[in-house]
Nucleic acid binder design. Structure first.
Length: 491
RNA sequence: CGGGGCAUAGCGCAGUCCGGUUAGCGCAUCUGCUUUGGGAGCAGAGGGUCGCAGGUUCGAAUCCUGCUGCCCCGACCA
């Protein structure tokens, strides 16, 4: 195994692939397009999940679980929904295997299902077929449910975390008595995603609405948060959909209003997936490995002893134990790596690869002086600090690291976001090495959007909420436009 | 689904063109000694149905046929 990883400049894509594997986050499995999430990677996902779950519950949502299999007939009830997902569905057709004449295990053709089952690519249909039974009156509304689940989308080309055939996610599905309430829910959940991305992933995001062609299959409106990766490409990091009455109509879900009228129910759905892991990795990490924001790091502090014999190790360990107790008391996760098989230099490189935010090293020199050597992962700055008061120091430092990682990502995005008024300029920026975000006028037609995509591979990531109204002309067609939209190449 | 590449020890690879000692190297593993402030050194040891199935041949990792899997590049997508 080589020592380092491919640098970002050398080959960004390869850097990412190697980093995911070498840092022990995930690996490819024997199943095409499906990954194994390893303990260290899963620990990060658990932290994300726990925090999001808390935020969902704080806003009145409850968890539930719906089936993995969806009868084909349910799935086909909402026309645009089918159109959107049909090409990437795994289908269960049989329920039994048998041993054939050659002693091979084969599918038993006699055990063909009367109705095929779709492995869920998303759960709107199974959930709305259920909601039909739960909703009769306005008193039954709203329903605010989330589920943590796996889904399958048969992808042609996959990449660890960014696009795999099976992935983990959460999907919220809510039912409301008015359009306004459903839309407010859609917006509220997008805000929660944005807050999570910025405060936990340390990732600045742009909130906005999708253009019609980028909308979720079956939605009237799709909102998303878009983040910039270090190579200037956009990564859609969360989506929230206003589904109108489409699914209520498809599954005949009506409720009795206060006024005694029968009306169709209004819906929203929203989700984030293990793709957030990809965002986290690509946004902050460097050529030495992962850089994790402290709020999501499975280990905050690693302590490496430097010693010549067991006597020294014992003395160092005693001092380390005291620091560990103090750190743990403040809720800081700390690992003391006294494994004698690896030498300090190896450990330094290893924990940098794994993105541990703070590393302490202590040898006899430090011990005698009452010091400890401290290195922060985000800047790789080395300093010598007093053992006394170390917990308070690190507590503050972790907050500073979290902020620094965010502001670094924010600066990078600002430096690579451009306002552009001509198509020539647009192409020049989009095709340049660092790519980036471009804010430009667009005439609002799918035709123009499609042409731009064909010619440059850039797409409209969103129509940002905070983009001011401003008279202009479409950079492509010259037709009038009232607002700039966000273009970028995307993952 | 189209184009390309790969499959040999736990991992990374050489050997394949041009068939012929006992299939080799690095890392990892095990043992011992010396080491330990940025990926340790020396000595020794263990570890292989050469992806699978056929075929050609006195003889196949190597040649032929078929199959399978994975990776990369495109079209599709969160």
């Amino acid at each position: 195994m080589s020592k380092g990883i491919t640098s970002r400049v050398e080959n960004y894509s390869q850097w990412y692939n190697e980093l995911v594997v070498r840092a022990g986050l995930a690996e490819n499995s024997g199943v095409r397009g499906s990954m194994v999430i390893k303990p260290y990677g899963y620990a990060i996902w658990e932290k994300m999940r726990d925090q999001l779950d808390k935020m969902f519950k704080e806003t009145g949502h409850e968890n539930a679980y719906f089936p993995l299999f969806i009868p084909k007939s349910y799935f086909s009830k909402e026309a645009s929904h089918v159109d959107g997902f049909a090409k990437e569905c795994a289908v269960v057709t049989h329920y039994r295997l048998k041993t054939d004449a050659n002693n091979q295990i084969v599918v038993d053709e006699d055990a063909k299902l009367e109705e095929e089952l779709i492995v869920r690519p998303t759960s709107e249909t199974i959930i709305w077929s259920t909601y039909k039974n739960w909703i009769q009156s306005y008193r039954d509304l709203p329903i605010l449910i989330n589920q943590w689940a796996n889904v399958v989308r048969w992808e042609m080309r996959t990449r660890l975390f960014l696009r795999t055939s099976e992935f983990l996610w959460q999907e919220g599905h809510t039912a409301h008595s008015t359009a306004q309430e459903a839309m407010a829910e859609t917006r509220q959940m997008l805000d929660i995603y944005a807050e999570f991305a910025e405060n936990w992933l340390a990732l600045p995001v742009i909130k906005g609405a999708k253009s019609a062609s980028e909308r979720f299959a079956g939605a009237l409106e799709t909102l998303s948060i878009e983040a910039m990766m270090q190579d200037g490409k956009a990564l859609q990091s969360g989506t929230s959909h206003f589904l109108g009455q489409n699914f209520a109509k498809a599954f005949d879900v009506k409720f009795l209003t206060k006024e005694g009228k029968q009306e169709y129910v209004w819906a929203s759905s929203w989700g984030v997936s293990t793709r957030l892991m990809g965002a986290l990795i690509m946004a902050h990490s460097d050529d030495k490995g992962l850089v994790l924001p402290p709020k999501l790091a499975p280990i905050h502090v690693v302590i490496v002893p430097i010693y010549k014999n067991t006597g020294e190790l014992e003395k160092i360990s005693a001092a380390v134990k005291i620091m560990m107790t103090e750190l743990k008391a403040k809720g800081i996760t700390v690992k003391f790596d006294d494994n004698d098989n690896n030498r300090p230099g190896f450990k330094f490189a290893e924990y940098e690869l794994k993105g541990v935010p703070v590393r302490l090293a202590m040898g006899m020199r430090d011990l005698e002086a009452g010091n400890v050597e401290l290195v922060r992962r985000d800047t790789l700055e080395k300093q010598v600090v007093k053992q006394v008061g170390i917990a308070e120091y690190i507590e503050k430092l972790l907050i500073e690291i979290q902020q620094n990682i965010y502001s670094k990502a924010h600066k990078h995005r600002e430096a690579n976001t451009h306002k552009v008024d001509t198509y020539a300029e647009f192409k020049q920026i989009i095709e340049s090495e660092n790519g980036g975000f471009v804010l430009a006028h667009w005439d609002g037609t799918p035709e123009t959007e499609e042409k731009i995509k064909e010619e440059t591979k850039a797409t409209i990531r969103c129509i940002p909420f905070d983009s001011p109204e401003e008279d202009g002309v479409c950079m492509y067609s010259g037709k009038p436009s009232k607002q700039r939209v966000l273009f970028a190449k995307a993952y």
